[in-house]
Design a protein around this nucleic acid. Structure first.
Ligand SMILES: [Zn+2]
Ligand SMILES: [Zn+2]
Ligand SMILES: [Zn+2]
Ligand SMILES: [Zn+2]
Lengths: 171, 171
DNA sequence: GACCTAAATGTTATAACATAACATTTGTTC
DNA sequence: GAACAAATGTTATGTTATAACATTTAGGTC
């Protein structure tokens, strides 16, 4: 009972409760600093997003949220998502129409998303050199960037290693 | 009458009919080489996409297509788009749920899309150095990429220059 | 506490984007 | 021209997202 990991997510490879705790603590701290309200709904939605490292769809969140608040509507979720994104606590995964908790809310925010087709997990990285080259390229093009989205679909390291062990797995 | 530029698009900065002619000729040639059918529908849809350098939505294409073929349905358009994307003649702009004609169908295909918020035009670039650094990063992460999407939203060079001349313009 | 205001949430409806499933037609091969 | 695959037609529905307006809540002023 000491460490109640979430039923939907039982990773063998890391302590996910730690991820959740970090994310929520950071969110609370940042919102307090900024004088914005991390209301009950917003907090709950953020917690639901962090149930796993998979990108989650808005309507999937709605389904997860209804047991908590049965009157919830799509608007409820989208408004919470809008807030969380504005605060940089959540990213939208454009190529999936889905959302993912941000691991680096309190610092850098130009990220690379690695999206695994097999396990659906999304890894966020801040690839300094790529971003430097990208800045050069944009300068050359005379383009002033407001937002950047780099999304790579493929197979993550863990899934590749599993595929070696179980080669007859379907794609 | 010699050069009938399209009514919806009258660029002062380049000969767009040339863009259209190139794109269609390349498409015809590639499809012939590959033994796939660039049918009337597919050809017409590709032509409609190339009406401008703006990303176009599927239902907008449907509206443009109905005068040509009044029985067209969403499926008609989405099937044509699926084919054109499979052949690399069109890209999906993930962050807009929209589509854009590809300028480099016959060679490289890992592109960077620069999407202007003001004029809505999309510029496609193949930024070698960025992609090289990205490959390093992916190798380091142990990630095997299947598809890559780099989409930057901001203000293009031409719009920036106009903004200098007309500084009171709204965002 | 009464009052005001802005922010957040509730509620209803609908817009916008995309696919499933199955029937029919067209093109190709033998 | 029979057989098969590819393309298209047709109907219906699934999925994602927002608009518009009413009500409630939180915080500041008197
Ligand atoms: Zn975790
Ligand atoms: Zn994986
Ligand atoms: Zn052009
Ligand atoms: Zn522009």
């Amino acid at each position: 009972m000491a460490k109640p990991t979430h039923p939907q997510h039982s990773p063998t490879h890391h302590d996910h409760q730690q991820c959740v705790d970090n994310a929520l603590a950071t969110a609370e701290q940042l919102c307090a600093q900024r004088g914005v309200q991390l209301t009950a709904i917003r907090h709950q939605v953020l917690e639901l997003i962090w149930q796993s490292h998979k990108a989650v769809k808005a309507y999937e969140l709605l389904d997860r949220f209804k047991p908590i608040n049965s009157t919830a509507k799509p608007t409820t979720i989208y408004r919470a998502l809008d807030f969380l994104m504005a605060q940089g606590l959540v990213h939208r995964v454009e190529s999936l129409n889905a959302f993912i908790g941000c691991r680096c809310s309190n610092h850098n925010h130009e990220q690379l998303l690695l999206i695994c087709k097999r396990c659906q997990e999304v890894e966020e990285r801040t690839p300094e050199k790529v971003l430097t080259e990208l800045s050069y390229e944009l300068t050359q093009a005379g383009f002033t960037a407001h937002s950047k989205s780099i999304e790579i679909h493929g197979i993550c390291r863990r899934c590749s290693e599993q595929a070696v062990l179980l080669p007859s797995q379907p794609n």
